[in-house]
Write a protein that binds this DNA or RNA. Structure first.
Length: 499
RNA sequence: GGCGCCUUCGUCUAUCGGUUAGGACGCGAGGUUCUCAACCUUGAAAGAGGGGUUCAACUCCCCUAGGCGCUACCA
């Protein structure tokens, strides 16, 4: 039997980092086993679900290149089937009508209500004390016929236990007394989560349910529904959660944009790098390798390699340098400077285009120059954004000067005001018939430096600041050659920073 | 409160009874150097606590503590 897994987000926000990892693991497992990776949008909570969220989730998955098989299933489209199933269970006596009037939710504080009830309960409570559980058939039918609203609850047996084998957490058991007669169908006829999930997973012939560990206890309820339906449950594999640095819940409300996939897209992360990082949060191949291609991840992925303990997504709020996990940032930089250039270029183009720095010659007459330049500057970049910001001086004459760099490398050495234009003249004279390459430039600059009886660093750093606007960057010999004779000379003569 | 799950460097992790407890990120030092990265060398940094079992425990068992999850006519 081929494996069929699904990623089933509820569209109540953008793609959260934890959901993204769940999707990734499902995808990897499907590809590893040669099975199908399906997508289901769990939009049964009409009040909270939005099309915008669905779109955002789809965008996130597309960005991560986690392509799904078959058509997307919208859970709300299956509501009729869910209802039918609930009614079938009712007819078979495996569920019952609960005529208890629906309690209006005390607004947003449902969590508090649960807490209060728990405290008041002081422990054990009888999960089978619903007065309607064993109502006589006559009264039951009569009340329903009279139009009295009712919810449908699963009739959980008084004694016994549910059990299942979790591929990550091992053998799981839960006594029936710990599980309430869960509501299958709301009194307004609306199917609830656990019913919907089970029905859809059956319908979609899901073989492995891989989802967050927050569903571990839900699983017992779902197993109960499978049993009532007489269907063998799929294999379950629960994933450890991804936590905030304080080991608390990682949420948009508390932590903002760091948890959203779109943030990483917008910040100039490479999907491949972020995917690599995500794969290592809660899973390992049991070896010391850190950088994995997608093919390697697919090849090495296994449920056995998934951890049981939660992982912290490490970042420091209010620290711009550490706005997200250090390792994710490192991995992105690692990808940018080491991946095949031809794989990187398609990401550079839109970045430069967006910054109005793109020229079509970069793919034509200036292709070689462009690729050499990208290859040169990518060595110290962290995100795709850097190509249009820090790399601006390579693609435009309109670049900014860093005041600190000017202070450190130019105004501190007043002689440079005349020396650099002089060097420009020297370049003009020396390179009339000689190639303007690193080797020749080095000879000229060294001679010039000796004539001025100064240090090489003074000339180089001064030139770097003038030619690129910043104090850091590639070797100046490379910068000169990359910018070319004309641009180098022109910029060396510039007096703009001296005024 | 109840039930369940979890616990190795700051963080991500390796170890599936016998290791100087390894790697990565980050941090420190040195090297290289025209700057900054990269790179190389290197340093600091961990088995929550307590009982067992065993010749031997990070590894198996129990207890405690802590963390997390669930406990809705939400998903």
């Amino acid at each position: 039997m081929t494996t069929r897994v699904r990623f089933a987000p509820s569209p109540t926000g953008y793609l959260h980092i934890g959901s993204a990892r769940t999707a990734l693991f499902n995808y990897l497992y499907a590809r590893h086993t040669g099975g199908k990776f399906l997508l289901r949008i769990e939009d049964t909570d009409l009040a909270r679900s939005t099309d915008e969220s669905t779109r955002s989730i789809l965008d996130g998955l597309a960005w991560l290149e986690l392509g799904h098989d078959e058509d997307i299933v919208f859970q709300s489209d299956n509501a009729d089937k869910h209802r039918t199933t609930a009614l079938k269970l009712l007819a078979e006596g495996k569920a019952y009508r609960d005529f208890t009037p629906k309690a209006e939710p005390s607004d947003a504080n449902v969590k508090d209500a649960i807490k209060d009830r728990a405290r008041a309960g002081q422990g054990e409570k009888n999960m089978r004390d619903n007065p309607y559980r064993d109502l006589s058939d006559e009264e039951n039918d009569a009340r329903a016929a009279a139009g009295e609203p009712f919810a449908i609850r699963l009739k959980v047996a008084a004694t016994g236990k549910t059990s299942f084998e979790d591929s990550v957490y091992g053998s799981q058991e839960r006594d029936y007394t710990e599980t309430e007669d869960l509501v299958l169908l709301r009194s307004d006829g609306h199917p609830l989560y656990n019913l919907a999930v089970v029905c859809d997973d059956i319908e979609m012939q899901i073989s492995h349910v891989i989802r967050g560990q927050d569903h571990l206890t839900n699983t017992h309820k779902q197993v109960l529904i499978y049993e009532a339906l007489g269907i063998t449950p799929p294999t379950f594999a629960h994933l450890p959660l991804i936590m905030a640095p304080n080991k608390g819940k990682l949420s948009k409300r508390k932590h903002g944009e760091v948890v959203s996939m779109t943030t990483y897209h917008d910040a100039g992360f490479l999907a491949a790098a972020f995917r690599n990082f995500l794969a290592l949060l809660g899973w390992s191949a049991g070896e010391e390798q850190e950088i994995y291609t997608l093919a390697e991840l697919i090849d090495k992925f296994s449920l056995e390699g998934i951890h049981r303990s939660n992982a912290v997504f490490n970042f420091t709020e209010n620290d711009p340098r550490r706005w997200t996990d250090d390792k994710a940032q490192w991995m992105n930089a690692e990808y940018i400077r080491t991946m095949p250039l031809t794989d990187l270029l398609p990401f550079i183009k839109p970045e430069l285009k967006a910054a109005k720095l793109w020229r079509d010659e970069y793919e034509d007459d200036d292709k070689e120059w462009f690729e050499n330049t990208i290859n040169l500057i990518r060595q110290r970049f962290f995100t795709l954004k850097d190509f249009s910001s820090q790399g601006r001086a390579y693609f435009s004459e309109d670049y900014d000067f860093d005041p600190a760099a000017i202070e450190k490398n130019l105004t501190k050495f007043p002689d440079l005001r005349t020396w650099l234009p002089e060097l420009a003249d020297r370049f003009g004279a020396e390179f009339e018939n000689k190639p303007f390459n690193e080797e020749n430039i080095e000879t000229v600059v060294k001679t010039f430096t000796e004539e001025k009886d100064t240090k090489l660093g003074v000339i180089m750093n001064g030139a770097r600041t003038l030619l690129t606007g910043v104090a850091v960057g590639p070797s100046m010999l490379s910068v000169f050659e990359t910018l070319g004779k004309e641009r180098s000379i022109m910029r060396l003569r510039s007096q703009v920073v001296w005024n």
